[in-house]
Amino acid sequence: MVDETGERPRHVDVPVATGVTDTSVAVKAGQRSTFWLKKLQVGFALCVVLVVIVACALSDVLAPYDPIAISLGATLQPPSAEHWLGTDQLGRDILSRIMKGGQVSLLVAFTAVFLAGVIGGLVGVIAGYVGGVFDAVAMRLADVQFALPAVILALVLVGAVGSSLFNLVIVLSLANWARFARVLRSETLSLRERGFVELAKLSDASTTRIVLRHILPNVMSTFIVLATLDIGIIIILEATLSFLGLGVQPPYPSWGTMIADGRAFLEQAWWISIFPGVVLILTVLSGNILGDAARDRLSPTLSTKW
């Protein structure tokens, strides 16, 4: 619009900003300190995850004791040079049990995230791109899944089919596919309207090509972030189920069962529950930090390179 003096906005001289360099330097300095903090955080998370994965994967070789060997002469021993993290009520070495338990927990978590991600992701992308009946049915199923708390669903399913590692993986993926489906569907919905999809359609590109070459590569970063964050959620869910006695069965340890077993001895022998708990928290936290970092790194527009 035109103002009273009849001058149009484009003729108004923009006052030259002074002190621009000073502020930008200050901003840079601020950025640098958070930048280092972030770098440190990510480095720490990476170390934790690597140590946990290596220790658990090689637990059969690295563990100082047999994780299921009962030693009634050495029950409830506090952390010492011999048993770094102490022993439990049956004299089993806590460190060895954490390593063996992690092996099971991580294997279950990675498999479940993979299954949930692939199934949920495909359902989401197809529902978003194709729409119609498939979309409606898939999203109502997802609604049902969201309405049921994951633990209850898992309790019912494990109760019905019995508890085994295989069933545990299936139950955990069933409890988590919907999140992938929802997020990737909405991502696909917005991508579908973008110019490059329109252009591909106008050059006779097939639906398969558009999904494979245009949609999937563009939802990949979201997928990786979701999967990284989901690993933490699934580890906790697995621990919950094991804690309730529906997951990994004794004598084999899992982080959840170890925490459950130690409850009765919290006053005399805190180390039985606390150490697996701390490892659980550290692992999940590190997973989340790495998930955030992956998001920052993989987003082409928001590239914080480090």
Binding site: G195, L202, R213, N218, P300
Partner: peptide
Amino acid sequence: MQPVLQDPYTSLSPRM
């Protein structure tokens, strides 16, 4: 015939 769209920021796939 071929189109050229308005916004070159959304008409090119960022991952290609």
